[in-house]
Simulated scan of single mutants.
Amino acid sequence: MLANTLELVSAARRCGIAVAAFNTYSLELTQAIVQAAEQLNQPVILQLGVASMKAGGEPLVKATVIAAQRASIPVAVHLDHCAERGMIEQCLAWGCSSALADGSHLSFAENVSLARDAVRMATAHQATIEAELGYLAGMEDGVTVEALRASLTDPEQAGEFVAATGVSMLAVAIGNVHGYTPQPPPLDFDLLARIAARVDVPLTLHGASGLGKESIQRAIALGVAKINVNTEVRTAFLSAIAAWGQRFGPTPDLRKKGQDWFDLMREAIAAAQVVVAEHIRTAGMLET
């Protein structure tokens, strides 16, 4: 069933757990995420990035929304990391439950303006807005210790930002990064605690790929109620496709068992599903 993102995240926060959110790029990856959540009987968030939006447009969004509607567990659909007001409004109109109005690369005042505008749009669609304060570096950014320190969320600014914008969720930068790094980045849990003390909305931890169960669950205990995972799931999906290609070579024989499209997709879906399930268990504090 299609769910309200804020309701899912707020319920998780009250229970001292988090909702896992996974980026999807196709019906097959959506299937892997939803099936894993259904098997564990846990809610989940399907996320669409800007690149996916530009590639798939309305058909991809509506297919994702329909998949959420038909799921046996609560599923929210979220537009991830978008700085374009028009795209945010369009995705909410197409049925997305929420959006991240990402002004983290802007000045504080410009970030506030974007988030306020997004909140107004969301109100008209009974949707939710997440915002980000502090800059989350990515693996392509050449992450350094100095860059991470300069990008961290300021607790006092966080309180001011939430009050000024009315956003319902706040993505924080506490040393986490997007994508893989050679070593898992050390998270500043003291900073996270100080941020949580300044704001009264659920916090989001982006870049959960590679952080490890212990770090993620410690962050959840300090107020994080939504964790974002992308790289690990995408890598598992693509690695399964690569392994299939190595096994059957550059020219599959469709007359032979195991070499058709559906065989390939079953393997990729199964591989992604394992990683999704692992993160859902971590977020939900479930026994493995």
Rank of each mutant, 00 (worst) to 15 (best):
Q47Y: 04
E7G: 10
R247G: 12
R281M: 11
H78L: 06
T64K: 05
A12D: 11
L29D: 07
Y180T: 07
W94K: 05
E267C: 01
H178P: 07
D190R: 13
E267V: 02
Q273V: 01
M265D: 01
L152Y: 08
Q35G: 06
L205V: 06
T123F: 01
E278I: 00
S168Q: 15
A268M: 04
L148P: 04
T251K: 13
Q157S: 12
P250D: 13
T153D: 12
H206T: 03
A197R: 12
R198F: 01
F248I: 13
G207M: 05
R116W: 02
G134P: 02
S104N: 03
T24A: 11
D260W: 00
E140L: 07
S10Y: 07
D200W: 01
N176A: 09
Q273C: 06
V177S: 15
R85E: 15
V65Y: 11
E132P: 04
L114M: 10
D253N: 15
E7F: 07
L192S: 09
T288N: 14
R194H: 08
Q39W: 00
G179Y: 08
T204N: 10
T128P: 08
E267F: 00
S107T: 15
A63S: 14
N228K: 05
E146L: 06
S10G: 02
F262T: 03
T153A: 11
A171F: 06
E58H: 10
E156M: 08
P185Q: 11
I241C: 12
G249P: 03
A225F: 05
Q35N: 14
S107H: 04
G134S: 06
A21W: 01
N176Y: 02
E132N: 05
S107F: 02
M1F: 08
T144K: 10
I227F: 11
L79P: 08
G207H: 10
A150T: 01
N4R: 12
A18C: 09
T144M: 12
G159N: 09
R194V: 00
G179K: 10
H125L: 05
L27R: 14
G207D: 07
D117V: 01
S98G: 08
A11I: 00
H78S: 10
S52H: 13
T251E: 15
L191P: 09
S151Q: 09
I227S: 12
I73A: 09
I129W: 08
Q217P: 05
A240N: 04
I88E: 12
A93C: 07
I45L: 14
P59R: 07
A236Y: 09
N41D: 15
R116T: 03
L2N: 11
M121G: 11
A71D: 09
L46A: 11
T30V: 09
E160W: 03
S10F: 02
D80Y: 08
L264Y: 02
Q39T: 03
A37F: 07
V143G: 13
K257M: 07
I17V: 15
V143C: 13
A32E: 03
A219V: 01
R85C: 02
K62L: 14
A20L: 05
S113A: 15
